[in-house]
Design a protein around this nucleic acid. Structure first.
Lengths: 150, 150
DNA sequence: AAATAAGTTCATTAATTTCTGAACTTAATG
DNA sequence: CATTAAGTTCAGAAATTAATGAACTTATTT
């Protein structure tokens, strides 16, 4: 097993730990460790020795997550993939989304709570305030980064 | 199905979506929507109609994630569970951890890249810089919150 | 110290997710 | 317009993960 093969498996396992298909992580691992920007479907298939179905499904998963992007060249029917540069945005977007989703869950829980003066209710209210704070602050980090880098 | 039962299932599905056991989400749902701070093992079992093994395993999962905490009363052999107030800290800790883990993965990928002048290498270097930035900034959000709330 | 209660462990079963491979679609090329 | 290439779809197989339930541990009570 080469260094690169080991690395690809490592990214696969990382992805799996977060409840996502190992193959998606492997594809990401390929693209990160690749010296080129132009990895085709076939390329990935050769490196990963996986079925077309699995490569296809997981490429589309990563495209939907905006972790990778597709680019094409006219006169060439293949599509090529690379790590998405806008993954910077998407990292934070995904984080904000998960914060928002949990904020909504907390709110719903509080709303159906029959005893709005209980200690439990108050504790959860505090947590909810924190989530509201995060929901505002996380996107601001992106803005801070942009300012700093121009 | 009561409002509360529906809610509990919803939190279960939310948890499942993030690759965690549905039962862990259900337990969280119970604790969020409960009017008391004192939900015992037995309590959860009654509400969720699940096996002892599943309740036990998932309580311990949530305890390890610091999402819930255990408290006891002397003269009572039961343990009681509630949403952890320090989950505020843990939310950010978990986020920082996932950022750090991915930063390490990106670094490794760059290190094994044979062409350190390629476009791909440079793009990923930029993403890496952003991760380094986030790794510093995310814990600072917690500090900002603390300042604001005292 | 026997009985009981609270919770854990773990082998088996059940449910879910992912992968494969073959048939299919779409579009470009000769 | 037939052929080929690129990729998608989807039913079934394989692999993984979660839940069950019974036996077990630990600690408390009578």
């Amino acid at each position: 097993m080469t260094e690169k093969e080991k690395y690809i498996e490592e990214v696969g396992i990382f992805y799996e730990k977060y409840g996502l298909p190992k193959m998606a992580g492997r594809i990401l691992g390929c693209l990160i460790s690749s010296e080129t920007d132009n990895n085709s479907f076939e390329n990935l298939r050769d490196i990963l020795k996986a079925s077309k179905g699995s490569i296809s499904g997981n490429i589309n998963l990563l495209l939907n997550q905006n972790m990778i992007e597709k680019h094409t060249i006219s006169g060439d029917r293949k599509s090529y993939y690379r790590i998405a540069m806008n993954s910077l945005e998407n990292i934070m977007e995904a984080k904000t989304k998960s914060v928002t989703e949990f904020r909504i869950i907390l709110e719903k829980g509080l709303n159906i709570n029959p005893n709005q003066n209980s200690l439990n209710f108050n504790n959860i209210s505090d947590i909810l305030d924190y989530y509201n704070f995060l929901e505002i602050e996380i996107p601001l980090l992106r803005v801070k980064w942009e300012k700093r880098n121009k």
